[in-house]
Amino acid sequence: MIRSELLQSLAADNPDLRPEEIEQVVDIFFEEISARLAEGGRVELRGFGTFSTRQREGRTGRNPRTGEAVDVPPKRVPYFKPGKEMRERLNPEG
């Protein structure tokens, strides 16, 4: 499923809304999650999962082509943990 398919599916279920409105709602949804992660916060969507960020230590990497050592600075990276309900739905008989 890609973004446009999500929009179509939501539009089919919400004939009272204009397609542009659906698109704005979906944009707000992902923008708010992204913004909160960029602020260093977490996003908890019970059943679906939790988004957070983690700190990666800096390290000395190597340019794979030249073998030259390069400094990789410490940085913050996004992290997602699926919720219990989601995990169970993916493994119905488990």
Binding site: R36, G40, G41, V43, E44, Q55
Partner: peptide, 13 residues
């Protein structure tokens, strides 16, 4: 885990 500032948790609400 760690968080750089104390920003609250975003929820469905």
């Amino acid at each position: 885990m760690d968080s750089m500032r104390s920003v609250g948790t975003l929820t469905r609400a």
